[in-house]
Amino acid sequence: MFSERTSVGLDVHARTTMAWALDCETGRIFSQRLDAETHNVMTWVAGLPQPAAVAYEAGPTGFFLARTLDEHGIRCVVAAPSKMERPRGDRIKTDKRDAQRLSKLLRMDELPTVRVATPAEEAARDLVRGRDDMRRDLARARNRISKLRLRQGRVWRGGTGWTCIHHE
């Protein structure tokens, strides 16, 4: 169990972040929708009773926020959303409820976490994902062109398609 006074859950999106925090000494709850800029989130968390710990779900926003919080001495846990169980009957899903749930699970030390990637690892992942996306896009474009030519009765019979000879 950790000794932070305040447990913070963040539901992070591209443009906004829903923040929900519980001061475990006084029971006071803090909640606010923030602009998703890292500076704004940092300022809000820094204004809470300290020490504080923060949790948010891994997603397309990456790990920049987690690294920034850690650099400022605020423990940050990034949760694996695919490994988090949802309570039975919990059909209403809102940003505020998600942030509240993350805060409570953090306090109980019940969050399945992921390792925060270094900037170099994150850049490599982005490169690999981008290359894979481009490869798939190229295959889809070639398939569309081949099917268009087939519908027009123009079939390539000179060997393997999409080679230098085929392009000529």
Score class of each variant (00 low, 15 high):
Phe2Ala: 09
Glu4Cys: 01
Arg5Met: 07
Arg5Gln: 04
Ser7His: 11
Gly9Leu: 00
Leu10Arg: 04
Leu10Ile: 13
His13Asn: 04
Thr16Pro: 00
Leu22His: 07
Glu25Tyr: 07
Gly27Glu: 00
Phe30Glu: 12
Phe30Leu: 13
Ser31Leu: 03
Ala36Trp: 08
Thr38Trp: 10
Thr43Cys: 13
Val45Trp: 07
Ala53Pro: 09
Ala53Gly: 08
Tyr56Leu: 00
Gly59Pro: 05
Thr61Leu: 05
Phe63Glu: 06
Phe63Asp: 08
Phe63Leu: 10
Phe64His: 05
Arg67Val: 02
Thr68Arg: 02
Asp70Gln: 14
Gly73Trp: 03
Gly73Ser: 09
Val77Ala: 08
Val78His: 04
Ser82Thr: 00
Met84Gln: 14
Arg86Met: 06
Gly89Trp: 13
Ile92Glu: 06
Thr94Ile: 11
Arg97Pro: 00
Arg97Glu: 05
Gln100Asn: 08
Arg101Asn: 05
Arg101Tyr: 12
Leu102Arg: 06
Ser103Lys: 04
Lys104Tyr: 06
Leu111Phe: 11
Leu111Thr: 04
Val116Leu: 01
Ala117Pro: 03
Glu122Asn: 01
Ala123Glu: 05
Arg125His: 11
Leu127Thr: 08
Val128Cys: 11
Val128Ile: 14
Asp133Arg: 11
Met134His: 15
Met134Ala: 15
Met134Ser: 15
Arg136Ile: 04
Leu138Tyr: 02
Ala139Cys: 15
Ala141Pro: 14
Arg144Trp: 15
Lys147Trp: 04
Leu148Ala: 13
Gln152Arg: 10
Gly153Ile: 09
Gly153Phe: 15
Arg154Ser: 14
Arg154Trp: 14
Arg157Gln: 13
Arg157Asn: 12
Thr160Cys: 06
Thr160Tyr: 05
Trp162Gln: 12
Thr163Ala: 07
Thr163Ile: 06
Cys164Thr: 07
Ile165Val: 13
His166Ala: 12
His167Gln: 15
Glu168Met: 07
